[in-house]
Write a protein that binds this DNA or RNA. Structure first.
Lengths: 225, 225
DNA sequence: TTTGAAGTTTAGGTTACTCTAAAAAAATAT
DNA sequence: ATATTTTTTTAGAGTAACCTAAACTTCAAA
């Protein structure tokens, strides 16, 4: 019996699949060429080329001018990469003491290391974590991914309480902004006041009172408590 | 003050430098195109192309038809890659419980991950190891590499004792051969007899007597005790 | 329903790396 | 010293990924 595990997909292909996966989560329908190009900081023509190729390999369903959707195979491949990315992030933070705003770029590289065995051992070594340092769920070995009841902090009403469970865009500057205020995954927040004019909020975190813009509130996920 | 750490060299360039470094260790003079081609399992013409390019980038000194030597810059780059490779091997064996014959291929990929910070933290996490699982010395942060008094087991004379400190070629089959006989780094061996005809040896390891061919003995490094 | 703008694809070119085949240089044997 | 073999380089071409510019669809406003 032969179990040939060879290089399946190129670095570039994996990155496209990952991006398409993320865009599918937001825009419910087909993902457009332009959206992919923007997210990947490349040109639409390059994207066109690549999705044709991904189509031929049965990783996406693609009709010209109509955008793409991942096939089952494509989605699984994307999830495998995302699993690796998030596990490495946990490793970097938990074992190597990186800050949560320092790990994304490194994990972008590590996520393309091939070995299945490596990932399964890493997963065990980390104690099968369910969430990465930004609160995003980690697909398990069967690529099943937890869905949690979360909503944006900006959706909370006055005097509601919540626990911070994640961030929307993990931009480094934003993560540092949170760090400075000691806001992280698990932090309890209380909405003291909401400015109806611009949607900005006054929140209580531990014994501190912070004034945050709507844009900030739209970037933090909470679970209502 | 700006410290711009950008992608210095391509995966392919790094692999060439590493190979040239290893070949320089063996053949004392210039390294030939053909030797590089053979070691890298590629064609001499590809090598010619690449060393011209490495020459232009001041990573090797290259005179046509005369082979190459690494420049200081080239050697440092090679050592940086080797440092990463060996540290990752330690990680895989010590933390993820891989066997010493399972780590080479994975480390071949991991060695190209960029971040200096990552390596410095990994190094600290592993306790600044001096040797990798095969007994090869790990260059330190300043790229200094330990030299140890080692010689091939085949060079020992009858009735001499030694401690196994490394292997010459870490071929997987060979490593498994050693595993089966419980021979590893630190194992004490005693040369009971040498067959003058073919150089094969009878050795004592713990309470076991093994008969090994000259080829095997030429692949094991020992320190005489 | 046309028409212009926006979005998408195609055509053709660039770069990095690889290859085969042929030419050139160096080493070796006669 | 010349001929033959080996080694090395060059020439020319292929592939993957990217780009610009031009052509083609689609969509939406007039």
């Amino acid at each position: 019996m032969y179990l040939c595990v060879m290089k399946q997909y190129s670095l570039s292909e994996e990155n496209y699949l990952k991006t398409i996966f993320h865009l599918e989560q937001i825009a419910d329908g087909n993902v457009s060429t332009n959206d992919i190009a923007e997210k990947m900081e490349t040109k639409a023509s390059s994207v066109s080329d690549m999705i044709r190729k991904l189509g031929e390999k049965n990783l996406v369903d693609y009709i010209k001018y109509q955008g793409v959707t991942l096939t089952d195979r494509g989605r699984k491949t994307a999830l495998r990469v995302i699993r690796k990315h998030r596990l490495w992030e946990v490793f970097l933070v938990e074992k190597l003491d990186f800050q949560w705003d320092e790990v994304h770029e490194i994990a972008e590289e590590l996520e393309h290391i091939e070995s299945e065995e490596l990932i399964s051992r890493l997963d065990a070594y980390l104690g099968h974590p369910e969430f990465d340092p930004h609160g995003d769920p980690i697909p398990d070995a069967n690529l099943r991914i937890a869905k949690i009841e979360k909503r944006l902090l900006s959706e909370l009403r006055i005097h509601q309480r919540g626990i911070c469970v994640g961030v929307h865009e993990s931009d480094n500057d934003f993560l540092q902004y949170l760090d400075k205020r000691q806001i992280g995954i698990g932090t309890k927040v209380f909405v003291e006041d909401i400015e109806t004019f611009d949607g900005s909020m006054t929140i209580l975190v531990d014994d501190n009172r912070y004034f945050i813009s709507k844009k900030i509130a739209e970037n933090i996920y909470v679970q209502i408590t």
